[in-house]
Computed example of a mutant assay.
Amino acid sequence: MRVTDLSELAAFDAVARHKNFRRGAEERGVTASAISHAVSNLEARIGLRLLNRTTRSVSLTDAGSVLVARLSPALLDMGSALDGLNQFRDTPFGKVRINVPSSIAPFVIGPVLGPLIKANPNLTLEVIATDRLVDIAEDGFDAGIRLGESLRDGMTAVKIKPRLRFVLVGSKDYFKKHGKPRMPADLKNHICMQNLYPSGVRYSWVFEKDGKAVEFQPSGPFASDDHELLVQVARAGMGLAFVWESRAVRDLKDGTLVSCLESWCPPEDWLYLYYPTRKYLSAGLRAVIAAMRA
């Protein structure tokens, strides 16, 4: 088989899995027009339409479904065979795509990037940071990172560092005017900024002490899914913010912000790096896991 044939088959496989030319192109590292051209060339050569295209959707024809069912496992086997050559190299070679929530990416991925890339100069890391829920298999990622929670069948999870926690912070000026809350129940008398999911849904602040959990729904004049903005609002003395401690660590150290209800803010569950369970794990992903494992 010619190299161009294999490239076209890989292009078709990527589009077929994502049902989207743009996402398939992103996975392959090419433009959407290039991947569309490759699929069209494949269809012209075999004389069959493999994809139904409209302005809004992409779907497989019957012929396309038959081809992708046989093609995807074969391409995975070829990728595994090529990755097996890493045993003859000093360091892994190839690309690893990771999805991580943007709210925690800097202090989860950031600390390991330098040492990991220095130790593996032939490894390319592609990190996509987003707080939206992502299907890593469908979106072409090798692995994802999330807080400890149940994962769907077919996924393997590895505990990674660091262990994070939320803290409740406010400025010195704010506390001079309003005092410090001593219990979560005291928050009803404070200005409390609201936390949002990327979907726009507000979520409660959850505190825990001695096995007792307490929820509080803030109703302050500002709401955001961006912890950096919430820190800035608290820094300006507008009210209290409930944020990842690592986002506020510099302000806490220099005294710009002060934390409260410390004993009610235990560490969150562990973070996990998760990936599709399969018999063969690429050398690149193994190197990432080794660098991040708790």
Results as ranks from 00 to 15, higher is better:
53 R>Y: 06
217 Q>L: 12
169 V>Y: 04
250 R>W: 08
91 T>N: 13
209 K>V: 03
16 A>E: 04
3 V>I: 12
172 K>S: 13
17 R>T: 12
15 V>W: 05
6 L>Y: 06
105 A>R: 13
229 L>F: 11
255 G>L: 00
48 L>M: 13
141 F>A: 06
200 G>S: 04
278 R>E: 11
239 G>S: 06
89 R>N: 12
157 A>Y: 05
139 D>K: 14
149 E>M: 07
112 V>A: 09
128 I>E: 15
250 R>C: 00
49 R>N: 08
198 P>F: 03
24 G>M: 03
118 K>F: 12
226 D>K: 09
293 R>N: 11
254 D>K: 05
107 F>W: 08
213 A>L: 05
199 S>K: 02
168 L>V: 03
59 S>A: 08
159 K>V: 09
23 R>P: 05
219 S>C: 04
128 I>Y: 11
79 G>C: 01
232 Q>F: 01
117 I>A: 10
162 P>V: 03
101 P>Q: 06
137 A>T: 14
272 Y>A: 01
20 N>T: 01
230 L>M: 11
242 F>H: 11
226 D>N: 14
235 R>T: 14
154 G>N: 12
233 V>T: 07
62 D>Q: 11
158 V>C: 02
36 S>H: 13
120 N>M: 00
63 A>H: 10
216 F>T: 03
94 G>S: 06
147 L>Y: 08
159 K>M: 07
169 V>N: 04
44 A>Q: 15
194 Q>P: 00
288 V>F: 11
288 V>G: 09
160 I>M: 03
154 G>M: 05
26 E>Q: 12
170 G>T: 02
21 F>M: 06
267 P>T: 09
145 I>Q: 14
269 D>W: 00
165 R>H: 05
177 K>I: 09
127 V>Q: 13
65 S>C: 02
179 G>E: 06
233 V>H: 11
106 P>M: 02
116 L>W: 03
97 R>Q: 02
35 I>E: 03
149 E>L: 03
217 Q>N: 15
15 V>T: 08
282 S>K: 12
69 A>F: 05
117 I>S: 12
48 L>A: 15
72 S>N: 08
120 N>Y: 08
56 R>F: 04
283 A>G: 09
211 G>I: 06
38 A>I: 07
28 R>L: 13
193 M>E: 08
223 A>T: 01
202 R>A: 08
153 D>N: 14
150 S>D: 15
216 F>V: 01
92 P>I: 00
124 T>I: 13
263 S>N: 11
171 S>K: 07
164 L>Q: 09
270 W>Y: 14
290 A>N: 13
